[in-house]
Design a protein around this nucleic acid. Sequence first.
DNA 1: CGTGAAGTTGAGTATGCTCAACGGTGGTGG
DNA 2: CCACCACCGTTGAGCATACTCAACTTCACG
Lengths: 254, 254
Amino acid sequence: MVLTVSTVARLPAAHQRRTHEVRLQAPCRACSIRHAAIEADVAAEDFRHLVAIASDFGVQKGQTIFGEGESGDYIYSVTQGTVMSYKLMQDGRRQVTGFYFPGDFVGLVDDGTYAHSAEAATDARLFRYRLPELNALMLRHPIMEHRLAEIARHELVEAEEHALLLGRKTAKEKVATFLLRIARQATDRGERPDLLTITVSRAAIADYLGLTIETTSRTLAGLTKSGLISGKARKIKILDEEKLREIAEGDYVA
Amino acid sequence: MVLTVSTVARLPAAHQRRTHEVRLQAPCRACSIRHAAIEADVAAEDFRHLVAIASDFGVQKGQTIFGEGESGDYIYSVTQGTVMSYKLMQDGRRQVTGFYFPGDFVGLVDDGTYAHSAEAATDARLFRYRLPELNALMLRHPIMEHRLAEIARHELVEAEEHALLLGRKTAKEKVATFLLRIARQATDRGERPDLLTITVSRAAIADYLGLTIETTSRTLAGLTKSGLISGKARKIKILDEEKLREIAEGDYVA
DNA sequence: CGTGAAGTTGAGTATGCTCAACGGTGGTGG
DNA sequence: CCACCACCGTTGAGCATACTCAACTTCACG
């Protein structure tokens, strides 16, 4: 069970939003951890070890979770809300490298420092695992290492799909691909895949797709005019998934 | 020791180029395996196991090593030449996702099938490890699993760097970044980092950078006119690495 | 020296960007 | 409770970067 972002944002705990890490909600610790992917294959006994080194916390929309180049001391798993990772250039150009939803891991480290920054795209809740302790645990439980390697490989596959989008797809194809990705995400959460709640801003979408906000907006307007989607801003209804998929794959005539 | 591509291409074994897997050269098996990265941390005893499940083979320029969507039965490590991975769209648009040089691994598998195709950008030589056997070996030697996970994470970091390039850099910045990447690669091999041998075609570069061949060519011409590089086609000399770096990072005034 | 592939250069164009104004919405405070 | 304000999103006009189509040159190989 996952709350929608708007629900989280309206929680009474809002008055507490002063400290850097806010308690947006305090769900059952073990339940939430269990939802995360890393322990999917982990036996009950190992699972207790994992809970022992995990700590959970909440972040508000816009808050930075970690910055590119910082010492990578933790690995994170999202339990509520949407998190995004991105890289910046000196002049402020931003490339969003991924969106992370409940169950996803953020903060994989290569050389000891984070390769990208991460911030909460919506109010969110995460678990974090201290890396030295996680590594020690993985030494004794190779299945965990295996699971983490799988996650990294899956991320890699997604990154290459993203490269194809960024390097070779048109604006229309990019936006169609994005909508289908959100739809798949909704399906994974057991929601209707045609009635989408966009949890991220146009700016975040644009920076994910390698477009400007304006082009993203215009392209969505174009898809609406073509009758493929309806709705507005953050509530989008997919009317013709089939055609949208053809567009996304570049597999359409016009 | 790594032969340049042109050297490999001129080897006397060329007359044998009829079968699908050609013996371009038969270097010491163990020596070459030792050069690959996976066994960097592997003890001598484990190393013998690794050699036992490896087989080496040569491919000619242009030959496919594996195709996207095929069953991922092997993982490969390059020992000679340049290999590239790419994804295709139905209409032929191609995104090159990476170049692989001696010591690099290709063919990481997520869900049992390859996420991209791979072909030899030059005549090349590779080792391949059968996955079931490698997995069995990794079960008994967790350090190998760890090493492979590291490789996947490193690939991921490079993929995100690539996403920034594809999504947010200008043609000039893309080409400058590419040249510096090749220079770093030369350094890693112990060669001069300012006298580059480009082992891949303009088409491959263009598809890696998300540009057309023409724009890539024109941009290189522009950098030459600006006095940052000299040479032509596949032999490029870097005259002003500092400025090239500024351009690559978008950290320059004009 | 001939041939085909690879690379370069030119002219015109289109896709997506910039700059700008306007519209909607939700949170805040009077 | 309502009005204001700030932020987010949309729409428009003009422009620039990179693309397309085309011709030509260079290079590797036979």
